[in-house]
């Protein structure tokens, strides 16, 4: 599971503990392999798992992913949709905001603290912004929030949840039944970034490197 999503799921489980009767559903878009991620979500406390199946293994633009989730979520009545602030792999920071825009509901990103949910009408959140500052606000529900890492400490799965998750059915929905527009951007290449030429790799054994480093620190009068 994407690390940021672990924080998102944990936040959902905490809301479930605060407000009895909350139903937590984990949703993932992708090929068959994402089922194992959904099962991990069940182990960590989600009550249900929904797999939006995209057959082929390919780059999905955030807009495609968001459209599929929004199209599915539009049929349910979710009070809160929680996502990670970004995916660890493609690092776009877009899906949550796009879901909110498509569904025309509120959105707050980079949430580092969540407070009380008031009578299912609003949630207090603090957004992490630059220079060690936070923006604090009430967000009217329904809403999408994307959470920053560190908002909580994700727990380990409990034995009872692990056993439950083993045999629980995960609902599969064919992406073609939800939405069939094209993505708006295309990935055309991926490569390793070039290394900068300026760096010097210290050579030799561990001891020689340590000696070389101390010499450098002395030369620069750092020690």
């Amino acid at each position: 599971m994407n690390r940021f999503d672990e924080f998102a799921l944990e936040e959902a489980v905490r809301i479930g503990e605060e407000i009895p009767g909350t139903e937590i559903e984990a949703i993932s878009v992708g090929p068959g392999r994402v089922v194992s991620t959904l099962r991990k979500a069940l182990e960590r406390g989600a009550a249900a798992g929904t797999h939006i199946l995209v057959e082929e293994e390919r780059y999905m633009s955030p807009f495609e992913t968001a459209s599929l989730i929004a199209s599915y979520a539009g049929t349910g009545h979710y009070d809160l949709i929680i996502a990670g602030v970004m995916a660890e792999d493609d690092m776009h920071c877009q899906v949550g905001q796009m879901i909110a825009a498509i569904l025309e509901i509120r959105c707050a990103t980079s949430v580092i603290h969540r407070g009380t949910i008031r009578e299912e009408t609003s949630v207090y959140i603090e957004r992490e912004i630059e220079e060690g500052q936070r923006l604090c606000m009430e967000v009217a529900l329904p809403a999408v929030i994307t959470v920053q890492s560190g908002i909580n400490r994700p727990r380990y799965p409990s034995l009872s949840n692990v056993l439950r998750a083993k045999n629980q059915e995960i609902r599969t929905i064919d992406a073609n039944d939800l939405w069939d527009d094209d993505g708006r951007d295309q990935l055309i290449s991926m490569r390793r970034p070039e290394a900068s030429a300026k760096g010097v790799f210290l050579e030799g054994g561990s001891n020689e490197k340590a000696r070389a480093l101390i010499r450098i620190l002395h030369e620069r009068a750092l020690i």
């Binding site: 633009s61 955030p62 877009q94 796009m98 990103t109 708006r184």
Partner: peptide
Amino acid sequence: FDLAPGIAVDLGAACIT
């Protein structure tokens, strides 16, 4: 990054971050 994806959706634009 809070604004850009929503603006893109509303303008029918691509979003590259």
